[in-house]
Nucleic acid binder design. Structure first.
Length: 377
DNA sequence: CACGCGTGGCT
DNA sequence: TAGCCAAGCGT
């Protein structure tokens, strides 16, 4: 029998139903020893992992699926087998091997980190979370993962998989991200004194293969008998999330100039930031306090050859939801003579060529709203 | 510190 | 089908 005070786990839930024993790390480790996936960066059981390889795999695995990383990891390792070879390379050749993997800041940080480890740490990774955390591209999760997996330290990396497993195991109803500290505390209590690295990997494997976001395969789970969410039949509902606040509505105006030959006036957005480098219909800034009465002045400034009287406001508006704010654009349309030349930094694109442009969905909506006749079938 | 980064898997 | 979205890190 588990002792009282063990996470309150032996209390009867809601005054009814059987007590559920606390989950044990050993149980999960037994499953891991049996079902462990053979991944390129994993060493044979009992083997001593190379911190360089652990680090490389952890960086590649940030935001990236195991199957994808596997295709890149070995090729990368063949070209840069040690941290010295990596640090001696040119950034360009590192980026070349990273091409297609995405999140290229990771590759830049990877290279910077290799240089720093070689120059300032004598080519050896520091073996504490705190020191690892100082290196470029290594945040709280990765520092804990390397400390545990490469150095056998009792650290607790917490990624999205582990948050999900813990939330279900203990039926944490608090929504994310508020639940993060609580989930971390619960995860820390499960970590065994020995094999913390295997335990972390086992948790992530469990989250990736069995305790999946949708339709978890509880029948195969080594912890199914100790999982409170499973007992309550609500595993799939957890973890809950607070719907992220939409952000304040922003408004603006877009000005669609259609030349007699059907070409539409566009420009390129600044290279950085939202929709960076994409093509757009010229328009005002988007702001919470946008005032439609300023629209004609803005149009005049942007596109001087169209006089105010020629702009026709389209009824209604175009709505679009970005990750962090909803946007409502009022659309104005004007015609321009065939020989009209585009203002500075703008150009005319033939209507049928618009599909080949880097035109974001929002801007496609704007065009469709401005020229509805194009879309009738 | 809220935001954006790249890609592929999911519905 | 194409739009949605993951979920570590740096800024």
């Amino acid at each position: 029998m588990t002792l009282a005070g063990d996470a309150g786990r032996t209390k009867r839930r809601g005054g009814s139903g059987p007590a559920i024993p606390a989950p044990s790390a050993q149980n999960l480790l037994r499953w891991y020893d049996r079902e462990r996936r053979d991944l390129p960066w994993r060493v044979a059981p009992g083997g001593r992992p190379d911190p360089y390889r652990v680090w490389l795999s952890e960086i590649m695995l940030q935001q990236t699926r195991v199957e994808t990383v596997a295709r890149y990891y070995e090729r990368f390792l063949a070209r840069f087998p040690t941290i010295e070879t990596l640090a001696a390379a040119r950034l360009d050749s590192v980026l070349k091997l990273w091409a297609g993997l995405g999140y290229y800041a990771r590759a830049r940080n990877l290279y910077a980190c290799a240089c720093e480890v070689v120059l300032r740490h004598d080519g050896r990774f520091p073996d504490t979370e705190e020191a690892l955390r100082e290196l470029p591209g290594i945040g709280p999760y990765t520092a804990a993962a390397i400390a545990a997996i490469a150095f056998g330290r009792k650290a607790t990396p917490v990624d999205g998989n582990i948050e999900r497993v813990i939330a279900r195991l203990f039926a944490i109803e608090t929504p994310l991200p508020a639940a993060k500290p609580e989930l971390r505390r619960l995860a820390e209590r499960l970590v065994p004194d020995e094999r913390a690295g295997d335990f972390a990997q086992a948790m992530m494997d469990l989250g990736a293969t069995i305790c999946t976001p949708k339709r978890p395969d509880c029948a195969l789970c080594p912890w199914n008998e100790v999982c409170i969410a499973r007992a309550r039949g609500e595993a799939e509902e957890l973890p809950r999330r607070t719907p992220k606040s939409e952000g304040a509505l922003r408004r603006g105006a877009a000005f669609v100039v259609v030349r007699e030959d059907g070409a539409v006036l566009v420009r390129r957005r600044p290279r950085e930031g939202l929709l960076g480098g994409m093509t757009e219909i010229p328009g005002t800034d988007w702001s919470a306090d946008f005032d439609l009465r300023n629209a004609s002045r803005a149009a005049n400034r942007l596109i001087p050859f169209v006089s105010a009287i020629e702009w026709r406001r389209r009824p209604g508006s175009v709505r679009h939801v970005f990750t962090h704010f909803p946007l409502e654009l009022t659309v104005f349309v004007a015609s321009a003579p065939k020989e009209t030349e585009a203002p500075r930094e703008m150009r005319f694109v033939k209507r049928e060529r618009l599909d080949g442009e880097a035109l974001p969905t929002l801007m496609r909506k704007v065009v469709a709203h401005a020229l509805p006749e194009d879309h009738q079938t």
